[in-house]
């Protein structure tokens, strides 16, 4: 449609809108977040480069870690990281979803408020405090009352044998406690975002609370809860200090879940300040690079899932 002559004349008399300099300025300031993220990946890549070129892909599969002969392989670290995180997830998932259901669907506002605050405090406690608690309280306790009885009875079963106070299992337990707040908070938001109508229909059809939750609300929130799980997995993979204090720091593929092991983040925390030469620090940074690439992808997938699940509530 052609503009009318008066409109054209009018437009000519109005001076063009001045550029919004404030918008440009704070837009540039906001860009520091994506810039930092990009820079972290680039810098770690650059620092790890000597090791990347020297070992190639074999780095990920190698299982020796010997700074004296300069042989480095990441496999025991990768195994320990993935094993502790998955075990933590298995322990935390049922509990986390139960708490999320209680927070979103059950009980008086008073109970919900108190439980909500407690879960947030659980998230606020620093990692190193979980670490010292696990090292002196949780680890010895599980060793005495859980690991030893189990491994004595099932000594013939390889993966349940040889109990030790610092182990893959203790590390997984602490991790489970530490990822619980993430799991709970995100699942609660996702469950709350399930359309009210669905729940009301189920109740109108005569469903009990459990049938409504199990057959209507949880299936409808499935994708979002999956996202929350991946997000929690990302946190578990990257957790450093508490795990370092209780996992036993043994760079081998553990024979049993009660054996000491090592994780990628723990190797870096323990060895980076002592690493000399070119190849040794580069190999440590390459561990960090592997870790960050995995957590980055997990986070992006999880965030996309959670966002599409909670965006529905706005509709």
């Amino acid at each position: 449609m052609a503009a009318s002559p008066t409109a054209t004349a009018l437009r000519a008399t109005i001076s063009p809108k001045p550029p919004d300099r404030f918008r440009t300025l704070i837009g540039v300031v906001a860009t520091t977040a994506p810039a930092a993220l990009l820079l972290i990946v680039v810098v770690l890549f650059q620092q790890a480069w000597p090791s990347v070129t020297h070992f190639g892909l074999g780095f990920l599969a190698g299982s020796t870690w010997n700074p004296v002969t300069l042989q480095f392989g990441a496999w025991p670290g990768i195994f320990g990281t993935v094993a502790t995180s998955l075990m933590a997830l298995v322990i935390a998932l049922p509990v986390g979803i139960a708490v999320a259901i209680v927070l979103a669907e059950q009980g008086q506002a008073g109970i919900r408020g108190a439980v909500g605050i407690a879960i947030e405090l659980l998230a606020a406690i620093p990692s190193v405090v979980y670490g010292i608690w696990a090292l002196y309280v949780l680890g010895p306790w599980t060793f005495q009352h859980l690991e030893s009885p189990v491994s004595d009875r099932f000594n013939s079963v390889g993966w349940l044998s040889s109990a030790s106070p610092r182990s893959l299992f203790t590390a997984s337990l602490v991790l489970a406690v530490m990822i619980l707040p993430t799991l709970t908070a995100v699942s609660r938001d996702v469950i709350r975002a399930v359309p009210r109508g669905l729940k009301e229909n189920a109740i109108a059809l005569g469903s009990t609370w459990w049938e409504t939750t199990w057959r209507v609300i949880l299936p409808s929130a499935r994708a979002g809860i999956f996202g929350a799980t991946i997000l929690a997995l990302g946190r578990a993979l990257g957790e450093t200090i508490a795990v370092t204090m209780v996992i036993g720091n043994n760079y081998q593929i553990p024979q049993s879940i009660f054996s000491p092991a090592y994780t990628l983040a723990s190797v870096i925390a323990n060895e980076f300040t002592e690493a000399t030469g070119d190849l040794y620090p580069a190999a440590l940074v390459e561990l960090g690079l592997a870790l960050i690439l995995v957590t980055l992808s997990a986070n992006v997938i999880a965030l996309v899932l959670v966002r599409s699940a909670t965006a529905r509530a706005a509709i």
Partner: peptide
Amino acid sequence: WTDWVRLACDVLVGTPSIAIGLFAYAL
């Protein structure tokens, strides 16, 4: 652009802090 900035923030919150330490060490 704000969508990307928001995603970058949320990803940065979940980035392992030990990796941020390595980054600060290098720079």
